[in-house]
Nucleic acid binder design. Structure first.
Lengths: 242, 242
DNA sequence: GCATGTGAAGTTATTCACAGCG
DNA sequence: CGCTGTGAATAACTTCACATGC
């Protein structure tokens, strides 16, 4: 039985905003992608999409998309498709965009500086509200209009500012210490760019972005091609063939 | 039948360096992590690790680690563990680090600039050898000692330089065009930071890093906690509990 | 008629648990 | 003995295929 543990009263509507469904982790990241695509569609004036179209624009197949959306309940119209605006709203709610999200970034070095200025975050509902660093040269300065504060201020500032998400872009050796400070400040979601494994209480969610790992996976495939082997077990490909 | 499809004529060589095993995609990214940890261990003077230790330091459980390594053949000693140096060498080979990898980065804006200066790449065997941009202000200048060239030069420069991996850090709208140029130049592995779906021939491997998606996944979990729900189906957690 | 929503089947990945070897 | 290596069991995820309902 692999079926979604259907949590009791389904309450299709009324205004029952909460089927309390257990969304698979793999689905969550795709929902974020669908949400971006829906935004583009809406800007383009599209009012309705079929699963086929939305899936195509998101790089997945339509069955997967429908299954993903089914975890949120039924929001499509048979024979027609999905209303772009209302599906967008539904996804925003599901992905926590109706709560205010406030992001703190620790480590304003090379990468951190770029992240602080990355317009993609604010544009997508994740304004970086505070910057932290240990470097006294930087503390007190402003980057992209945001003042850099000293790492030791993390506890107060994060609590005051209602920070929900912390990003760590420090050198590896500093990351755990910073992480501990964030956790102590009540931050329960952390995006870690430092190439180290963070230890956290298990009510804290950590996601790691490791750029070297990404390159290494690509290098593996380069090597495979030269070895002439059929490489990997996988099958993930809907790319448009030239 | 889940067993490795054993690809026909196995060992062309004398000393069986290649079982021609089909490494699962999920395993590949973890191998990259193990490789990093092994490097750290070696620098710390450690000569032998058990699967338990290496797994702990990598954030996975030991059964998974052993299974992962088993795809490369047997390199451990029962009752003892793995020799750090030789396992490191084995992984480097498997991950294509014995081929020369040369990385081209397209888009030297906010994020691209940071990537160009990211020491983690060169340090881990992925020197960024060439930068490209369309901005005439940038073309001709140097960043981190690397000259910025015009995007239209991609074909020649990539071919000459033997570029094996392309990184795209342009704004979304430019990404597909850049991607086409890279592909035309023979680049078969691309790391895409632009928030768009790239179309490529299916002999080209694309990996996408979407920072907003990462944040959104975290936001989802933030929202879940406030909803008090048991959230997700998943179970991916080996974080050290405080 | 047509596209959604979903059980059921298939595939891939993880974990268990223990045989086998140093 | 202890720790590796691995079949067998479990779980997660994907795809199929079709009944369902607009």
């Amino acid at each position: 039985m692999t079926l979604p543990p259907e949590s009791g009263a389904a309450a299709p509507e009324g205004n029952g905003e909460r089927p309390a469904r257990p969304v698979p982790e793999a689905t969550v990241s795709r929902l974020a992608v669908y949400l971006r695509v829906l935004g583009e569609l809406r800007e383009a004036g599209v009012e309705t999409v079929s699963s086929e179209e939305l899936a195509g624009a998101s790089g997945v197949n339509s069955a997967k998309l429908r299954k993903d959306l089914s975890y949120l309940g039924s929001y499509g119209v048979r024979g027609v498709g999905y209303d772009v605006t209302s599906l967008q709203g539904r996804l925003q709610g599901e992905l926590g965009m109706d709560h205010r999200q406030s992001v703190a970034l620790v480590g304003v070095g090379n990468l951190g500086h770029a992240l602080a200025g990355y317009t993609g975050f604010a544009g997508r509902g994740f304004p970086v509200s505070t910057l932290f660093d240990v470097d006294d040269e930087l503390v007190g300065s402003e980057i992209n209009g945001i003042r850099v504060r000293h790492v030791r201020e993390i506890p107060e500032v994060c609590a005051e500012g209602g920070v929900t998400i912390g990003m760590i872009a420090t050198p590896g050796p500093a990351a755990q210490k910073v992480c501990d400070l964030l956790v102590a400040a009540g931050v329960q979601s952390i995006l870690n760019f430092a190439p180290v494994l963070l230890s956290v209480p298990d009510d804290v969610e950590v996601r790691k972005v490791d750029l070297s790992v990404e390159l290494q996976v690509l290098a593996f495939h380069v090597a495979r091609r030269h070895t002439g082997a059929a490489a990997v077990t996988d099958k993930t490909n809907e790319s448009v063939v030239s």
